[in-house]
């Protein structure tokens, strides 16, 4: 059997909000080490990779590896009923046909039980090569979301360029052009809510990406105050948000290339 209890149920809510518009159905792969999920969007341009380590749950039991296939839109609707301080318990039988989600309020005064039908999803897992990225930008997640939103007014593609001085996001379209430059900056009083912008630069990078997908990724903004964007020329970029201190959600996006 599989059973896992997450004291901060709102993490699961934020994860579902982050992926439900990008991926329809996905397998939650459960093993003794935790839960992982890997899924591509329907056009095979982007990929989401979620990791929740077993030690981040206050109870975790997985007798044998199972893949629990779920419709993420249906799951997100159920998980939206989680109160912010609720604990969430996920349970499944050994074949993953039926999945139970139980939400408990902090004082134990309210318990709700939901059952979702497991789906048989035939998904191939992609091998993601481990890469030393040329440029790694860490910045406030809300700022990244805002830049994606603001540049979408101008065009559908953003050129992200890193240099020693900073990072620029530029877009152009029929209306004109827009460019937003961020310089490296220190965090304000080490305050996690006011993170600065930092760039680890092995080599400068300049690469084009579809704003539509980056905007999908920014639905993960409520998960964390910072986001990390890792890039090398000629390969997909990775946008990573931590999931509490138990794992991460990573979004990969293939670049736009010259015609």
């Amino acid at each position: 059997m599989f059973e896992a209890r997450l004291p901060q149920g709102d993490l699961l809510k934020k994860i579902l909000e982050a992926v439900k518009d990008l991926v329809t159905d996905a397998n939650f792969d459960c093993s003794s080490t935790g839960i992982s999920l890997q899924a591509m969007d329907s056009s095979h341009v982007s990929l989401v990779s979620l990791l929740m380590r077993a030690d981040g749950f206050d109870h975790f039991r997985c007798d044998r590896n199972i893949s629990i296939g779920l419709n993420l839109l249906a799951m997100s609707k159920v998980v939206r009923c989680v109160g912010n301080n609720d604990a969430v318990t996920m349970k499944a039988d050994d074949n993953g046909d039926l999945v139970t989600l139980m939400f408990e309020s902090q004082d134990g005064s309210k318990v709700s039980d939901w059952q979702l039908r497991g789906l048989d999803i035939d998904s191939e897992r992609l091998g993601i090569p481990s890469t030393d990225y040329s440029s790694v930008v860490t910045m406030p997640s809300a700022e990244f979301a805002r830049i994606c939103r603001d540049l979408s007014v101008i065009g559908d593609t953003v050129v992200i360029t890193t240099t020693k001085e900073g990072v620029t996001f530029a877009s152009k379209g029929e209306l004109g052009t827009g460019k937003i430059a961020l310089r490296q900056s220190a965090a304000i009083d080490d305050d996690a809510d006011s993170p600065g912008v930092s760039i680890e630069l092995q080599e400068p990078v300049s690469q084009s990406f579809a704003l539509r997908y980056l905007s999908f990724f920014t639905k993960a903004t409520p998960l964390a105050p910072t986001v990390t964007i890792s890039m090398s020329n000629g390969v997909p970029l990775v946008v990573e948000y931590p999931v509490g201190d138990m794992g991460h959600i990573r979004f990969y996006l293939a670049p736009k290339v010259e015609d």
């Binding site: 982007s46 990929l47 990969y252 293939a254 736009k256």
Partner: peptide, 14 residues
């Protein structure tokens, strides 16, 4: 503004 590459051309099936 460029042609969208497919992710599968970078990441092979494992």
């Amino acid at each position: 503004s460029g042609k969208q590459a497919s992710l599968t051309s970078f990441f092979g099936a494992s």
